[in-house]
Amino acid sequence: NLYFQGLKYMVPGARVTRGLDWKWRDQDGSPQGEGTVTGELHNGWIDVTWDAGGSNSYRMGAEGKFDLKLAP
């Protein structure tokens, strides 16, 4: 699974964008943008601060869902 392989790169400072299971509307800005991981992966959740200004926790394994992917 590509998403599980990418988890080791989901570290503080990593750049991310919305992924396969995104369901959080425009939390990442409008139009959709990139963000920066600000915390360690914990119980399948990870913290992100978006360039647009907001921050929140997103699923990276929790509930079998992956809200994020590494930015290109």
Results as ranks from 00 to 15, higher is better:
Gln5Asp: 14
Ala62Thr: 04
Asn1Ala: 13
Leu70Phe: 15
Gly54Trp: 06
Lys65Pro: 00
Arg15Pro: 01
Pro12His: 09
Tyr3Lys: 13
Arg25Phe: 15
Thr17Cys: 15
Leu68Pro: 02
Phe4His: 14
Phe66Asn: 01
Gly33Met: 08
Asp47Val: 14
Val37Asn: 03
Ser30Arg: 12
Asp21Thr: 04
Gly35His: 01
Gly64Trp: 08
Ser57Pro: 04
Val11Cys: 14
Met10Ser: 03
Val48Ser: 02
Trp50Ala: 00
Ser30Gln: 14
Ala52Trp: 13
Arg15Cys: 06
Trp24Ala: 05
Tyr9Trp: 13
Trp50Phe: 02
Met60Leu: 06
Trp22Phe: 06
Asp51Ala: 05
Gly35Gln: 01
His42Trp: 09
Ala52Phe: 10
Asn56Pro: 02
Asp51Ser: 03
Val48Gly: 00
Gly6Glu: 15
Arg59Ser: 04
His42Ile: 13
Asp28Asn: 11
Leu41Gln: 07
Gly6Phe: 15
Arg15Glu: 01
Gly29Ser: 06
Met60Trp: 09
Ser55Tyr: 12
Gly39Phe: 05
Thr49Ala: 09
Ala71Glu: 08
Gly61Trp: 03
Lys69Cys: 15
Val16Thr: 00
Thr38Glu: 05
Tyr58Gln: 02
Leu20Gln: 14
Gly35Ala: 01
Leu7Thr: 08
Gln32Thr: 10
Gly54Ser: 09
Trp45Ala: 01
Phe4Asp: 14
Gly33His: 07
Trp50Cys: 00
Lys65Tyr: 07
Asp51Glu: 05
Leu70Val: 09
Tyr9Ser: 09
Tyr9Phe: 13
Ser57Val: 11
Gly53Met: 02
Leu2Cys: 15
Lys65Cys: 15
Arg18Asp: 02
Ala62Lys: 04
Arg18Pro: 07
Leu7Pro: 07
Leu41Asn: 07
Glu40Pro: 13
Gly61Cys: 07
Phe4Pro: 15
Gly13Asp: 02
Leu41Tyr: 10
Arg59Cys: 01
Ala71His: 08
Arg18Cys: 07
Gln27His: 07
Gly53Asp: 01
Arg59Met: 01
Val48Pro: 00
Asn56His: 14
Trp22His: 04
Trp22Met: 05
Ala14Lys: 08
Tyr3Val: 13
Arg59Ile: 04
Gln5Thr: 12
Asp47Ser: 14
Gln32Ile: 08
Val16Pro: 02
Leu70Ser: 07
Asn1Trp: 10
Pro31Gln: 08
Phe66Gly: 01
Gly33Asp: 08
Trp24Asn: 06
Ser30Trp: 11
Leu20Trp: 12
Gly29Met: 04
Gly44Phe: 04
Thr49Ser: 10
Val16Ile: 05
Asn56Ala: 09
Val37Arg: 02
Ala62Gly: 06
Asp47Cys: 15
Gly54Leu: 10
Ala52Val: 08
Gln27Arg: 04
Met10Leu: 13
Val16Gly: 01
Gly33Lys: 07
Val11Tyr: 09
Lys69Arg: 12
Tyr3Gln: 14
Gly13Ser: 05
Arg15Tyr: 01
Gly29Phe: 05
Gly6Tyr: 15
Tyr9Asp: 11
Trp22Asp: 03
Ala62Asp: 04
Gly33Val: 04
Gly29Trp: 05
Asp21Ser: 06
Phe66Ile: 05
Ser55Trp: 13
Tyr58Cys: 05
Met10Val: 09
Lys69Val: 12
Phe66Val: 06
Leu2His: 15
Ile46Arg: 00
Lys23Asn: 09
Asp21Asn: 08
Glu40Cys: 15
Ala62Pro: 00
Glu63Ile: 05
